[in-house]
Design a binder for these strands. Structure first.
Lengths: 202, 202, 202, 202
DNA sequence: TATGAATGAGGCTTCATTCAT
DNA sequence: AATGAATGAAGCCTCATTCAT
């Protein structure tokens, strides 16, 4: 029992450190963020980070992995709660495009970092692939559900529409994350929703 | 004359070094790329890079700036050459989605780095904003041209469609650049083209 | 308690490093001394020096500052201990002219470096001014003391004699420090003492 | 003839470069002055300096040597021109103490550098020794001249007085050169002159 | 003769990592 | 469990020097 309790305390600490890492990565970038900065954010010493994680690399990868997992969880939740295809789709869109202003902007930047780093860190690429795949499944399933029930009468095949919506949302993410974009997250959501509506001929 | 010649030689050298930097940034990332790697790529010494550029930072920023400028140039060329709105639009789409396999993949990754770094480097953000703005202008103008001539009968207002197309292409870029995407650049082009066709009701 | 103890250990380390720096500056000069040399002298790594001091510049300035402070301390001690004006004056003279053979010659050279560098490093100049001022105060006070008690019957006004003695000692310092001088420190002390005796008409 | 002429042009160039070096050494110090700075001062390229001198070290040593030789020349001139012992002595004192405000302050600083560097550069030490020796000869000879003619009735032996005067002047030099001194060059001259007058019992 | 492009050695500095406490 | 002193590898950068022109 004591053991279990201690483990859960340890796990809590790890999560706290990972959250600090995500914020710091968003601010300084995956490659140039310093353990010292993260430690400062968490109010601990660098030694403690090393005590909880094997190495800087493993620690930062775990942090980005958490970003992806949180993402997946949020989608899964929407999927379970929302049964109407169109409502579910708009909520999924909102979950992406909305994440930015609501939650800290660092998280959005961290996601961009995630994608940018994936091409040179195999571990990250694998995680990112998994997240992408899960994302596509959820969207595609939603569209298929709507088509099957006759709510959607798609003008293109379901997979193409799925890819289009996903690409649009990724593009908005990029635009907003870089802070050099031309659209706000509200506009992004509006655009994505309108286009989806037309492509699905709701 | 001699002076002019020498200056052009110097400029040529700078461009060569910048190209090497772009490739190296694509491989190693903006923050962790080493001058040594770039020098090796260009077949020169690190001292020479410092001889041509004031600092590592200034050098790398100039490299990413070049990526943006090359981008703009390629669009401008298409805009001048191609008069038919739809052909021009498909070529613009292809210019983005196609760039990846044709030219080195490093360039695509460098672009992703560009966007990811923009949020923490003011200089980069300004350049990226300018590139984005120019990109939007070219696409919007093309769509307006098609609408004016009756070739396009858009289902949404022109600006929304422009934003949608741009977002889609950015999203594809991100997906392909991260190498964790689910679509090839061929598929990306096909999706973007089909969606554009429908939105413009060509 | 633990905190206090740790701080004193840290301070001790700093002093050790500063002493090594003084020796090394005396050997290699303020500008060309290498952190590596100092580290070797202290038997530590260069990283440790940077751990204890912010930068090379700050470290070296602190080292020369210590030279000045040690100087001041030694004078203050003589001033407190010795009540007889003439004995005190001869001891002050000896404290300067004698420092060289007794203690390491590097300290003398370090002092010369101090003066030479002062003209281009503002921080050093300020410290040097303070040391000079204190030095003058102590000598002048001693002379005034002797005059007041009738032990000295000066042939020139007290300030002039003070300046003369100080200049003579500085000159000896320079001569000995440069190792190109024509007088030994014994001779220097003898000359300064004899001249002082005459000027004060003891 | 042509050869001779070219040689003199070459020699003139060298002197120009040496003068620039002296100024630059005064500003930046012997060890940290950069060839680039000296070249800028002289309005030439660094390549040219290397064309005229074998190495940085040899160049800078030659520059300081010139400072010493100029010094010696100025004393010799006074010695030849001035026959009255006391007038000659005061002019010698003035030549030292006055050099500072009259000529550029860099020259004074360069002299301090000279002395400070002598302890670690054998070549410099030899030159400095020679200059010191010559200086002592001139002063001693002047004093002996005055004693022989009965103008001076020294209170201490001639050598001691010589050493005292030289030390005082060196000390003033140091004080003024470091720019952290407590006396102006006018005051320095006054002090040295008064003390000399008393010691020589003129 | 003089230039300036290019080199490369070596310094300062940063920072992840280790380890004694 | 947690700290933080200490290490040492590696990067950027400076600058004297070389050499083709």
């Amino acid at each position: 029992m004591a053991r279990v309790h201690e483990d859960s305390v340890r796990e809590e600490q790890r999560q706290r450190l990972l959250d600090s890492a995500i914020r710091a990565i968003g601010r300084s970038g995956f490659d140039s963020v310093r353990l010292r900065d993260i430690a400062a954010d968490a109010g601990v010493t660098t030694g403690m980070i090393q005590y909880y994680f094997d190495s800087r690399q493993a620690f930062l990868v775990a942090a980005l992995e958490k970003v992806g997992l949180d993402q997946i969880n949020s989608w899964s939740q929407i999927r379970e709660v929302e049964t109407d295809p169109w409502t579910r789709l708009t909520r999924l869109i909102a979950a992406c495009a909305d994440r930015n202003p609501g939650i800290a902007i660092e998280r959005s930047a961290a996601w961009l970092e995630f994608c940018a780093c994936a091409c040179r860190h195999t571990e990250l690429r694998e995680i990112l692939s998994a997240v992408n795949q899960r994302w596509r499944e959820v969207v595609l399933e939603t569209i298929q559900l709507g088509c099957a029930s006759g709510v959607f009468r798609p003008v293109l095949d379901e997979e193409t529409i799925t890819d289009a919506i996903i690409a649009m949302l990724d593009g908005c993410e990029m635009s907003i994350g870089s802070q050099a974009g031309l659209v706000t997250s509200d506009e992004a959501r509006a655009v994505a929703t309108q286009v989806a509506e037309h492509l699905l001929n709701r």
